[in-house]
Structure formats: C-alpha cells, structure tokens
Simulated assay, not measured.
Amino acid sequence: MSTFRHADALWADFPQLVPGVLHVESFDGTYDLTKYLEIAEQRLDGTTETQLPEIQAWRRAYTQLGLKPTQYRCASEALLRRFRKDKVLPRIHPVIDLCNAVSLAYAIPVAVLDLAHIAGDLEVRYATGREEYLTFGGEVEHPQPGEVVFADEAGQAHARRWTNRQSGRSAVREGTQTVLIVAEALHETAAEDVSSLVSALGQELGQPRSAILSRTGPEFAY
C-alpha cells in the first residue's frame, strides 16, 4: 500500500491548505458536465477569474514561493481563463473532462494522476533539484530546488510549481484504470468548498474512497 501526503515543511508554510483526495478504481465515462459549466459561467458573469477568492489565494501563494502569478497560473485559473475566452471546455478524457468541469465550477485546481505510473508513495514537497519531470512533449526537466512538486519514491516529479503543470508521465490516457484525484485550496472557505467538491466528484464517480487531509491527518493510503 502506498500513501499520498504533503510534507511537513509545506504545512508549516501554508497552514491554511485544505487538500481533498479520491482514489478511483473504475469509471464509466458517462458524465454530464452541464451543471458545472453553468456554475462557472455564472461565477464569471461580469468579472474575471482573477477576482475570485480561490484564485487570489493561489496567486498569493505563488508570490510567497517567489513565482510571478501572471507567468505561472494555478491550473484552475488557467482553465477559467481559457473558458472565459472560448466558452468551451476542451475534451481530453472522460475523467479529465469531469474533473476540469468541477475545477471550473469551484475555481479550485484538481489534479488527476494515473497510479500505474507512480512509484510508491507520492508527496507534495519542496524539490531538491534532482527530480525528473517528463513533459507532454517527451522532454525531461529538472525542477528548481525549492519548487513545489508532486514527487514519488523514484524521484519522478508528477507536477511542477505545485498546481501549475502536471507531468506527461502520469497523465490519464486510454487504458488508464486507477486514478488519484487531488484538489487543493487555500482561500478562507477552503474547508467547506473542498469538502463540497470531493462530495460532488464522489457522486459522479460512484462514491470512491476519499478524504479531506489536514496538518494533523496528512496521509491518504491507497
């Protein structure tokens, strides 16, 4: 059995963090995204994603990490920005599409990882600089020391700059059977909103095992 967790150092620097996790072992690919897209449209009506408290919290976190928020956007901000301009959600894979739609509705970044390509335990932590990150184009990058990554026991980074960009190594694709879904938020009502998000995904995905993590209960076994 493996575990997912956030490192103690990350909890110390971001005590307001609320992560939600789901372990999904089966999915049928028949998801209606309409209600989530409608919520996103309503939330963006007359405003932009940068004004949403969920996005502002991630922008503050990126500034705290020494990153320019306008250069490196969290995944939910990038999705909302694209959705506001194009009015459509790009279709990639049924589970990815569902998680992207829910991410849009809640303005909270949601990562979906193919567990078949993750070696052992997975930890969100500060990088040493020795980790290997595989881009979607097949190139290998080394995260900067101190950058927040999702790292497994083999030293593979499955996300860079925390919630900015996932790896091509553990990307969900045709044939994926088991996934780990991670939602993370930092805003004032994060505890309530992440719980609601996890519940919504659970209802869509057949009530898989899930948990809301905390500094005192930081691990999820899968």
Rank of each mutant, 00 (worst) to 15 (best):
A127L: 07
T47C: 11
H23I: 00
A200G: 01
H6W: 15
E147I: 04
L134W: 09
F136C: 12
S26I: 02
G168L: 13
G202C: 04
R81H: 12
R165L: 14
S214F: 07
F83G: 05
V172I: 06
D121Q: 06
F220A: 01
R84E: 15
V172W: 02
L89M: 07
C74Y: 01
V179A: 09
A111F: 12
P19W: 11
K68P: 02
K87H: 15
W11A: 02
A190Y: 03
S26A: 14
T34K: 05
A159C: 11
S103D: 14
V18E: 11
E192G: 02
Y62E: 01
P218L: 07
P143H: 10
P69C: 10
S26Q: 13
Q166M: 08
A127I: 08
E41C: 07
P145D: 08
L113F: 15
L104I: 00
E123I: 15
P208R: 14
L80S: 13
G66Q: 01
E77H: 12
A183R: 05
K87Y: 09
E54Q: 15
E132Q: 01
G46P: 14
Q177M: 05
A190D: 03
V88R: 15
V112P: 11
Q166L: 05
C99K: 01
Y106C: 04
A9K: 09
V172G: 02
P90E: 13
V198I: 15
T163N: 15
S26F: 04
H23S: 08
P15K: 04
A185I: 06
A101G: 07
S103F: 13
A191E: 15
K68A: 13
L37A: 10
T34L: 04
P90D: 12
A183H: 07
G146E: 00
T63V: 06
G155L: 09
R125G: 01
R209Q: 11
Y126Q: 06
E174R: 07
L17M: 13
L80Y: 08
I108D: 10
P218W: 07
N100Y: 02
S196H: 04
F220W: 01
A119K: 15
Q166P: 02
V182F: 05
A61R: 00
L213N: 02
V102P: 00
A101Q: 06
R82F: 08
V124F: 06
V21K: 06
L37D: 09
S196D: 05
